[in-house]
Design a protein around this nucleic acid. Structure first.
Lengths: 338, 338
DNA sequence: TTGAAAGCGCTACCAT
DNA sequence: ATGGTAGCGCTTTCAA
């Protein structure tokens, strides 16, 4: 492998000139630049990443800490990862993939050994045990999620409170007054990933603001869990006309159960789902949904990391505005029936 | 951040001794080792990855090139990735995540700039355009998949030919004589990812060997595609009693269609699916399946890479034996009905 | 506009 | 069993 010295020699310049041609951090005459670039191309020169990192204290690598359990959210995680890698490349960075399993030790390992310039972490819990370590690192972090104490840490996520409010406003606007929430599994609440709480908070507040009758229910996985949730909601809220479903996994069993019970969607029950677009559109009924904008969130996380590295101003808490796509699972209740 | 020199000073030894304590490449007296380790712990020393890479020509990083399109196979890809990262960590390596989108340029970039010691590539096509580049790299590669010309390149995959034969043997053993193959989408065949061909080859050969009547059909995505495939198979093979399904996405629509048509599984139609275990067990009918052992394949890929790096012997083509899990979608045809 | 040279923090060879 | 030290291939300051 040729080195910068080989290139310098071939081009008849000093190594520093080659370096400056590469980095653009110094004006270079057009002809010198041309000679250097020709030499680079001819020799097939590529700067040695380790040498660069050592000399410049920059690795051009981002750590992405992902929950790599085999989970229901797999598609969403993949969308985040794809967005992060793609966005990182547009900023000339690569991505080192860590599992959440490694915990605090993993972060510290890659940070302390100077393998990465910044970290992006997914699946942040309310009182995430990694937060103290994150605060101590010399590299900046961007969290995808919102822990309880996020002072001084950059966080990016969908605004789940606003999402809940948006779902209820949509349904209320269609004349629905009795609305049930099919929530995430108890495991999600226990894991304290805060999106569940934030959604619930927004749901309850909007319910009060809009003067709705609502009931909420966490949902155990599997058809049995969904059946139980539906039964409880029906009991607590007789005559409910709409459901908000914040649980991807529950969608299909829910639709099956409703069909089996002879309850049509949207004629008898309206549904707003919170899930990735392609999940909403691959169901037996094309579901009106609020998208989980994994791509945007991932891209924004990378952009935030880049700003932090450049010492540019960042908003430390960025909650993306939800947007609702109307499809076929909500219909207007005629005023006479309200 | 403390350096190796700081540690050496604190422990009253030379930097090289610290280095040897770290690497274990030289005998060190117990007491010296203890002093050095105490100094390391006290100072919170972590070797600088770039400096290490520069001095030793080893990065302890593996590249994982994954197809990060948002695809049907997402869960399988995640399982590969998880296995690779986990296995890499047990060998003290980290994983740099690249997208297949970057193509040959991406491989060359990370290889030429010495960011990685070896590469693991997924989603290999029959005449993969990256193969020539892969052969030229100074770093070894391990392919997950089997291209047409794989001479001299380490490849790891499920033995899809054997998988097809296993599926047919199982069904034949249960008395089935007319068996249809619900294949992958035409897009998969066009993309020339060879697992589709290999499965088909194995299917046709075993069909002949076992004296079966079979028909095969690629399957367009969506319920309509599955409906068309099923109709064609029924036409080509009237009275078929079993289906082999090599298409995850088709499974649910297929089961829905069969139910709608009043054809019971397994009483009227037996099914063997080729898919991850959790997909097979999350269907309305618990499906007898041949697992795609993503975890094993990923782990083996890493192990193979490690052997290559250590200049140990490797088998260049490792096709893992398929295994079939009996569940509820195949039943014995009574001899009187065969 | 360009060059010279001092590091960056390690590893591994050559000594002892 | 341990130490000294010359690089590894860059970046960046200081000089011109």
């Amino acid at each position: 492998m040729p080195t910068i010295n080989d290139v310098a020699r071939a081009a008849g310049v000093s190594p520093s000139t080659v370096s400056y041609v590469l980095s653009g951090r110094r004006p270079i005459s057009a002809e010198t630049r041309a000679r250097v670039q020709a030499a680079i191309a001819e020799l097939g020169f590529h700067p040695h990443a380790g040498a660069r990192a050592l000399a410049s204290s920059k690795t051009n690598v981002l750590a992405l800490v992902a929950p790599l359990r085999v989970d229901v959210n797999v598609p969403v995680i993949m969308q985040f990862a794809t967005a992060v890698v793609t966005a990182a490349r547009t900023h000339n960075h690569d991505v080192l993939l860590l599992t959440k399993d490694e915990g605090t030790a993993g972060l510290e390992r890659v940070a302390h050994s100077t393998m990465v310039d910044a970290l992006i972490l997914m699946d942040i819990e309310r009182d995430d045990v990694r937060l103290p370590a994150i605060r101590r690192l010399k590299q900046p972090s961007v969290l995808i999620g919102l822990p309880a104490d996020h002072a001084g840490i950059a966080c990016v996520d969908l605004d789940f409170e606003a999402a809940a409010a948006l779902a209820l406003r949509h349904l209320a606007g269609h004349g629905h007054r009795r609305i049930g929430l099919v929530g995430p599994s108890p495991a999600v609440y226990q894991r304290q990933t805060t999106y569940a709480d934030r959604f619930l908070t927004g749901f309850l507040r909007a319910s009060a603001d809009l003067g709705l009758r609502t009931a909420t229910h966490p949902t155990e996985p599997g058809t049995d869990g969904v059946r139980a949730a539906l039964a409880d909601l029906d009991t607590e809220l007789p005559g409910l006309t709409a459901l908000v479903v914040h649980n991807e996994e529950a969608l299909r069993p829910l639709l099956d159960l409703l069909r089996a019970a002879g309850r049509r969607v949207p004629e008898d029950v309206a549904i707003v789902a919170i899930c990735p677009r392609d999940v909403a559109t691959s169901m037996p009924v094309n579901l009106t949904s609020i998208d989980i904008p994994a791509h945007d969130v991932g891209t924004l996380a990378v952009e935030t990391a880049m700003r932090l590295l450049d010492h540019r101003r960042v908003e430390f808490t960025r909650l993306l505005e939800p947007s609702l796509a109307e499809r076929d699972s909500c219909r207007e209740i005629p005023p006479s029936h309200r």
